[in-house]
Write a protein that binds this DNA or RNA. Sequence first.
DNA 1: CTCGAATCTGAACGGCCAGTCAACTCCGCC
DNA 2: GGCGGAGTTGACTGGCCGTTCAGATTCGAG
Lengths: 209, 209
Amino acid sequence: MARNRQATKDRHQEILEAAARVITDRGLADTRISDIAEQCGVSPGLILYYFESKDRLLVEALTFANDQFYLRLSRELRRMQSARKQLERLVELSVPGLLAEFERLDEWALWIEIWVLALRDPSMAKEREVLDRRWRQSIADVIRHGRSTGEFPEGDDADELGLELGALIDGLAVQVLMNDSTLSAVRMQRVCMEVAAKLIGFAMEPAPA
Amino acid sequence: MARNRQATKDRHQEILEAAARVITDRGLADTRISDIAEQCGVSPGLILYYFESKDRLLVEALTFANDQFYLRLSRELRRMQSARKQLERLVELSVPGLLAEFERLDEWALWIEIWVLALRDPSMAKEREVLDRRWRQSIADVIRHGRSTGEFPEGDDADELGLELGALIDGLAVQVLMNDSTLSAVRMQRVCMEVAAKLIGFAMEPAPA
DNA sequence: CTCGAATCTGAACGGCCAGTCAACTCCGCC
DNA sequence: GGCGGAGTTGACTGGCCGTTCAGATTCGAG
């Protein structure tokens, strides 16, 4: 029975991963149940055996993918001592397409789909707010950590700074994701660190000419 | 004939406005041709008489609505002498739901739909970049204006600042639009001006306690 | 008034796809 | 070895909606 429940859970998660993948590739609007089924080598009927409707599945898939991103982020940050390094890593992971090394779903594309859904679906709206709060908090925590070690000076409320930097990263990430010809991934990375330096109040290293 | 072309143009525009309205209300994904027809009191067939396909119409409607916003913005800014006032007005117009007075389509909801489309539709992607560049440029122009009048100090490249503040506003606007319980319209307005003050380097007035 | 072009209508067509279902397989258990 | 339930299949259905089309209406020009 434990084995059974485990197997069930795996299939569940397998479908969620497949769904996230398909949404990333084709976009939420063009994602069909049969695409998801095909992605995990299974018949379309089975998808509806595990999820009560397509809509519910899509919502779950989107939050699932976001969770994955958050888990990776917080796991990595927890390992680092230096707040400065944490901040750099956080930015690095947030710039769409900067790190090809990792198998990277384009989380950001999913994030935008979440926004659209959240405009009309109350359950998604609620979910979105939770995810977003977590994101801002991660940034604020890095700042607080930096202050406690003396890397960053005291200053404005850390949560306020988290809000500001989070929004900045969101806004820039969208443009990079869209392949804006004037905003490369590397430039976004630089801009984020420069603004963070100004707002938090630490010194940027001299540009690595 | 001139009359004819005028009439045609009106119907064209009428449909675009109706489409923008429907998209705002129901979301791009749930917008049907018959909804748009109903919105302008016309039969569904006529919509396809003026636009070659639903997809093309939707793309045009989205850029049309964005144009409207931009025109209103630039018209208003042009009238003002003070760069500081311009900046305040620009922020005011950018905060979703702050000004109920005007008949306000929620332009921001449309903007997010543009992002989603632009991820997959190359023509929309191109359009989006143009619209975005115009937006950043409006901000940069305000900064340049302020420097020329001495209201703002010289400092970092104005285009860079336009990019940064534009992204900040985008990111915050999304959250306000989603009714984030921790970010009210008024708070967004304050945050924008505070960050602008820090980055551009002017002094905020003491809080109007 | 007449003709023709532009505009407009709404019924009908056709493709698409979420969701259903009856049947089949697999596997653990008695 | 056979019973039963969970897991799986894929054909089918029902509704939806973009698009087409054959004709009605409007209107300006001659």
